[in-house]
Amino acid sequence: MPSQQELDLQISPLVQESLAHNSRTLHNLQSLTASLFGISAGILGLESYSGFLFYLVFSLLTTALFYLLRIAPTALSSPASPTSKAGVLGRYFRSPLDFWTAGVTNGLAGFILTWTLFYGLVRA
């Protein structure tokens, strides 16, 4: 007896290429912006916790902006079918939790790299 999740996948299958394309788009955006946040954190001369807090706030802001400018407008042009309970986010990403939190870990290395570099360059 297959589980409920397997049944759901059988009834409404997913397109792997679209999944990969969507998450790649988001990943590219996040790693690019993370290094830019590092630059500005270095310019501002942030240290220790305040720098990481800056990164956390701005990476969540990136995801929120992406949601507002890229995902929310599509709900207006073609409303989600009433049968899908995941809403407009579920049309493009599998799990909402992943969508909101993956960005923080995606760009952390790039952020620290440019943060230390620009801190050193500006304060030298």
């Binding site: 394309h21 788009t25 890229r70 493009y92």
Partner: peptide, 8 residues
């Protein structure tokens, strides 16, 4: 960013 595609 490039437009997203429906996964269903």
């Amino acid at each position: 960013t490039s437009p997203l595609r429906p996964i269903q």
